[in-house]
């Protein structure tokens, strides 16, 4: 990350990471407000696992432990991963995902600065492929007035897998707004009929739209303090809006509004916190624009026509693979050479 010549802010890695973590707080706070404190448990679990595996890997690789451990990059991976999996996920799921992200996606590729893929998104992909059933147990927001588990009951489910007598998982969890949209469209309902269901709010999913707004606020803070450049988030959201807009105008009974796409799933946290990982995104402005537009297009295609409800993670990973190529073609021409290629 420090090797990149395009970040000129004279702040150290750990300062930047600390501010990124800080910028996640509004979203997390709204998460707790709407869905309860279970998410804090998974964030804590992920953080402990990330720090432990990071330390072990640094030791195995004969790297100094303390300076690397205190750069907060492992913590950021842990938080992003924890925020993308259901809060009621069993403890081992969080541990396996985080450990995979740090050990395989980060250190086997050479550690911070050398990893080709965003570690948090690799962790997410591994989990959704390996444990699809557990990855669908999302909490119902308080406001819907359904049966709710108190904190002790949530802890008991996370650590022992036991629910209070008489309750089934179906009663206390629900599919995500994007998932519900997909399955109901599959059953032949129209967008407006689906949007009338109680799980939807003003823009997208009840509760989750506000969490997305929280991440957007944190993201804007990063944008204005110049920790991230505008290219990635704005081009990503702009492209997503444009593509979703075209489909929506063309056929509003089958395609939801662009705002729904903005405030559903991982679009907001992805635009400001995931795509902007400096290690796994292109270095030039032009490269960033191509990268973000491609990610937005893929997100939309996977969400609407693919097999998974959300496409942010896979879009990020697929575009991560393209970064070396994008960098190759967007690097400024070297003086005295006929073209920029070597």
């Amino acid at each position: 990350m420090l090797s990149s010549p395009f970040i000129t802010t004279p702040t150290s890695v750990n300062q930047i990471m600390l501010r990124v973590l800080l910028a996640l707080i509004p979203g997390i706070a709204l998460y707790v407000w709407y869905f309860g404190p279970a998410i804090l448990v998974s964030i804590t679990l992920a953080s402990i696992t990330a720090l432990a595996t990071e330390a072990v890997m640094l030791k195995l690789r004969d790297r100094p432990i303390k300076p690397f451990l205190s750069d907060h990059s492992a913590l950021l991976t842990a938080w992003l991963l924890a925020l993308s999996i259901p809060p009621l996920a069993p403890w081992w799921l969080v541990v396996v995902g985080t450990a995979f992200a740090i050990v395989v996606a980060k250190h086997l590729y050479g550690g911070l600065g050398s990893n080709a893929f965003n570690p948090a998104m690799i962790g997410y992909a591994v989990l959704i492929i390996s444990f699809p059933a557990h990855m669908t147990h999302w909490l119902t927001p308080h406001a819907l007035g359904g049966i709710e588990l108190d904190f002790a009951q949530q802890l008991s489910y996370i650590f022992h897998g036991t629910l209070p007598a008489g309750l089934t998982l179906d009663a206390v969890t629900m599919a995500t707004p994007l998932d519900t949209l997909k399955t109901q469209l599959h059953l032949g309902l129209s967008v407006s009929e689906i949007r009338d269901m109680p799980i939807y709010g003003r823009l997208a999913g009840h509760g989750s739209e506000m969490v997305a707004l929280g991440f957007a606020i944190g993201g804007l803070y990063l944008l204005f303090t110049r920790i991230i450049s505008w290219h990635l988030p704005l081009v990503y959201l702009g492209t997503l809006f444009a593509v979703a807009g075209i489909f929506h105008v063309f056929d509003p009974t089958h395609y939801v509004t662009p705002l729904f796409h903005w405030f559903s799933g991982a679009a907001m946290i992805g635009a400001f916190f995931i795509l902007t990982d400096p290690v796994t995104s292109p270095t030039t402005a032009k490269g960033k624009i191509i990268f973000a537009a491609g990610a937005a297009l893929l997100t939309y295609l996977i969400r609407v026509f693919g097999g998974f409800p959300d496409g942010m993670a896979f879009a990020t990973i697929l575009m991560n693979i393209c970064v070396p190529l994008i960098d190759l073609y967007t690097q400024p021409k070297v003086f005295g050479k006929k073209d920029g290629l070597l």
Partner: peptide, 15 residues
């Protein structure tokens, strides 16, 4: 055992 599907699916072969 809960099963770790990744290992059985194609990505597991490559890894």
């Amino acid at each position: 055992y809960h099963g770790f599907l990744l290992a059985i699916l194609p990505p597991g072969a490559f890894i």
